[in-house]
Design a protein around this nucleic acid. Sequence first.
RNA 1: GGCCCGUUCGUCUAGCGGUUCAGGACAACAGGUUCUCAACCUGUAAACGGGGGUUCGAUUCCCCCACGGGUCACCA
Length: 526
Amino acid sequence: MSVRTRFAPSPTGYLHIGGVRTALFNWLYARRHNGQFVLRIDDTDAARNRAEAVQPILDGFDWLGMDWDEGPTKDASGDSFGPHKPYFQSQRNDRYVAAAMDLIASGHAYPDYTTQAEQDSRRDIAQRMKKAYVHRGSNRDVAPEENLRLYKEKPAPVLLKVPDGQTVAFDDHVRGRVEVSTDTIRDPAILRAPNDKGVCGALYAFATVVDEIDFGITHVIRAEEHLSNTPVQLLIYNALLDQAPGKKPPEFGHIPLVYYKGEKMSKRKLPPLSAIEINALKACGWTDDEIKGRDDLNIATVAYYRALGYLPAALVNYLLRLGWSLNDTDEFIPLDVAVKNFSLDRVTKAPGNFDEKKLMWLQTEYMKLLSPAEKLERSLPYLRRAKLIGDPLPDATRELLLKIAEASADRIKLLSDFVFYAAPLVKDAIEYNPKAVADKLAKPGAGERLRAYAEELKGVEPFDAPTLLASFMAFATKLGVKPKDLDGPVRVAVTGETTGFSLPETLALLGRDKVLSRIEGSLKMT
RNA sequence: GGCCCGUUCGUCUAGCGGUUCAGGACAACAGGUUCUCAACCUGUAAACGGGGGUUCGAUUCCCCCACGGGUCACCA
């Protein structure tokens, strides 16, 4: 039988990094075994706008290159594709209700008429006796036909009848054997009491199990928080599969949670956007309002990495290594290697802390693999948004940008960095960074040096990088200053910043006229 | 509180009873290189939660404790 895995996000409006890792493990496992990866939308309590909440999730997967074989269509219209469609739980409730009715009929489930007050008092008593309250509902021992009749007459929450005195056991692919006594498991609700429209909605645990069976899922790989739910679900599987000889529950693999600084990655604890990040976004054309209006721009979401120009391959590699290892040395693991080697038994058991520094290191490693032309191609959307270029890109501009990409080399770590290096050369009027001006221009002697160097530049021939470098070094020696003390003022004068790629390259790309006029213009700031 | 899961350098991890005074990577630190900044090169420091067993021998197996986490809904 072919391997079928699944990822089932609930529509929250953004794609969480932890979810991506879970999905990635599912995706890799399916691809590794030539199976299928199914996407399902868990929206059983769907109140919010579905398209709006689903779209960012599908976009995220699309961007990451994690394709799904069955599931919602990419346009998030609510349509699905695949042999078991629809793949939205909100569209499958009739199926869940029917399955629950079958369970009542076969004596595996029953309606519970226990009042809330009664349950509360039982819980109190149990608590006073320092024992866990394990709920068993009112009609547990009533005959199936009678329960069915009563339920039709007076619908109520439907509970699964958990067998007494048994042990539920399963072999988890990452945790090994897990055993739990059924005496510690309450009879779980599988169907809600009717709502104001008379609909009895399925509860998560039940809907999942019904779907897993209907969709033919063979391996459920999910976060560790579901480990405790698994015995309950296994009981539901057993009840549902009782009448289906030959069918068996899927296998499970519970992967550890992703932490940040020792705690769960909850929105509350995440760092706000740094000044550097905000500046980068603004340089790329974002307005303050746009940035403030996006509460999904933080290190826990895919949108954040996309906005700043991380490469999907780097994010995927990082997430893969957080909780999984190939061997004792490899950190850089391209997707094709991962697909060939992924296995659940090399998944770690302990939670892992998200480390943005290590992700950044991988990002630079993946960036180094890109040729200048590829870097340019991928940075185009960022340059456009920054209004540095228009849509039909003139050949001359493209050529200049390509040279900038070459000169910038490994300095471009994020695609959005391209904007920083290109701006001074592409824009007609440059912006002077106040701090750069204060540090390099508004210093004694800077003005004289600039004036003298401008004179020197007039005679440099040809005006190209090698010649400029030779002349620059010779001139610094002649002035009796360290090269960096000449580099500083000149660089700020012509780019507005203290950092950038090689100064001779910068001057050459700018051309003598612009260089001289910018130096001239900067003298008033010295 | 009941049940379940986990615990190796600051962080991610390797280790599946001896060949390990515990290996790699990121970060840190110190040097080198360089026209700024990156990149690059070299080096340094840094860990088996505690206690009992089992064994000739435990980071590795078992038990207890401590700590951390998950879960106990008509949420997903």
